[in-house]
Structure formats: C-alpha cells, structure tokens
C-alpha cells in the first residue's frame, strides 16, 4: 500500500518499502542509471566491433566516411546538444516548481528532436539515391568497395539504433508533457522528469560518438 506523505503543499505517494521521498527518488534514479549501463554495453559492443573492422581497413573506412554530408551531420550534432540543453532547462524548471516553463522546454526539446529525425531521414534518402545502402543496390567504384560497404553496414545499424532511441525519447517527452499538463509535477515531486532528462542526454552522448567515428575521419580527404 502507498502511504501519502505531505511534501510542500502536495501529497506525494510514498511506497511502503521506502523510508522517505528522497530514498524513493534515489532508487528510481539508480534504476535509470543501471538501465543506461546496459545501453552502454549494447552500444559499446557495436563500437568495439566497428573498431575491430576499422583497424583492419583504416583507408577504406576513411573513404566511407568521406561519403558523409558533413554539413548535415554537424547541424544535427549542434541540434542535439541544443535539445540536451533545453531538456536540462526543463529539469531545472521542474525542480524549482515552474511547471509552465517545464512544459515549454519539453515542447521545444521535442521539436528539436523531430528536426534531428527529419535531417537524419533526409540523409538516409541521399544515401539511398547515391546507392550507398548495403545490399545488392550498393555501388562504390574503387578497389575497396566491399570494405566501404562494411563501413555503411555499421553506419546504418548504429545510426538506426540511435534513431529508434530518439523516437522512444520523443514518446517519453510526450508522456511527460501530458503529465505536466495534468499537474503531476511540482518542486517537491519531479522524479519522472529527471529520469527523462537523463535518458535524453544519454541519447545525445551516443550521437556525439557516432558523429566522431562516422563523419570526422574522412573529412581531410574531401
């Protein structure tokens, strides 16, 4: 049974296994961080596989990287960092009880996230037109066509997985916005917003590494 505890001016549901709201909040936070560690291991495995293949074919992987549109990649990176900033501001606003600002920052973060996805799908379309999607459709003129194709296999798997995480993140922010409008959050209770912020920033970190390994190494060849 949950026991209602008066925190500030709001009744907060305190589950029976917890001593106080702070312990309940920290437990939720631990849950999110442990989940993110499993995500680190998943993406980490793929990054390790990428590194192994890259070490075997550094020149071909640089050629593959040369095919990236740096302008779109850089804009997307800047956008995602901006969205992490607005999300951090959303978390900050909720911690001081400014729920109107919280709703505004959640909406801005979602819009930036959607812009990111729009640019990403534009990039995918350009790769498709350029015959750079791995499979029988793939075309690359040069002695290391197979290795360049391998680069694109990693590119599509890793960025695709990232797109899935972004989409889930936007879904989570939608739920947070709905709960904000229902008045579920206050200065004393905003755990769910904190956790959504941690998840969103984590997805940003993954992209920053993707930008570093896919877009930058072939830049000097352009």
């Amino acid at each position: 049974m949950s026991e209602p505890v008066l925190v500030g001016n709001q009744l907060l549901e305190l589950r029976e296994q917890f001593e106080n709201p702070e312990q309940q909040r920290e437990t939720a936070s631990i849950g999110m961080w442990v989940f993110l560690i499993t995500e680190v291991m998943m993406f980490g495995g793929l990054f390790t596989a990428f590194t192994v293949y890259r070490l075997s074919n550094p020149a071909a992987f640089n050629e593959g990287s040369k095919e990236m549109t740096i302008v779109l990649g850089a804009i997307n990176t800047a956008l995602l960092i901006l969205s992490s900033f607005t999300m951090a501001l959303a978390v900050y606003s909720s911690s001081i009880g400014k729920t109107k600002l919280l709703a505004i920052f959640l909406i801005i973060t979602m819009i930036i996230g959607l812009c990111f996805l729009g640019i990403k799908f534009t990039e995918y379309y350009l790769h498709y037109q350029d015959h750079k999607v791995p499979g029988f459709w793939f075309e690359y003129h040069g002695p290391s066509a197979r290795q360049v194709q391998m680069f694109f296999v990693f590119y599509f798997i890793l960025t695709g997985l990232h797109v899935i995480h972004m989409t889930i993140g936007i879904g989570i922010l939608l739920v947070m916005l709905y709960r904000t409008l229902l008045g579920s959050f206050s200065a004393t209770y905003h755990t769910a917003v904190d956790l959504a912020g941690i998840y969103w920033s984590f997805v940003d970190i993954i992209w920053i590494f993707l930008y570093a390994i896919f877009y930058i190494p072939g830049l000097h060849l352009k």
Binding site: S84, F85, A88, G197, D204, I205, F209, A212, I216
Partner: peptide, 18 residues
C-alpha cells in the same frame, strides 16, 4: 575526434545528467 567526444560526454553526464 573520439577524445573530443569523450570530453563532451563527460560534460553532459556531469551537468546535464547531473
């Protein structure tokens, strides 16, 4: 580039993820 990414990741984890 990965070293730069690691610095950015550290900043995000420390401040944005608190």
């Amino acid at each position: 580039s990965v070293a730069f990414a690691a610095i950015q990741a550290l900043l995000i984890a420390l401040f944005f993820m608190q």
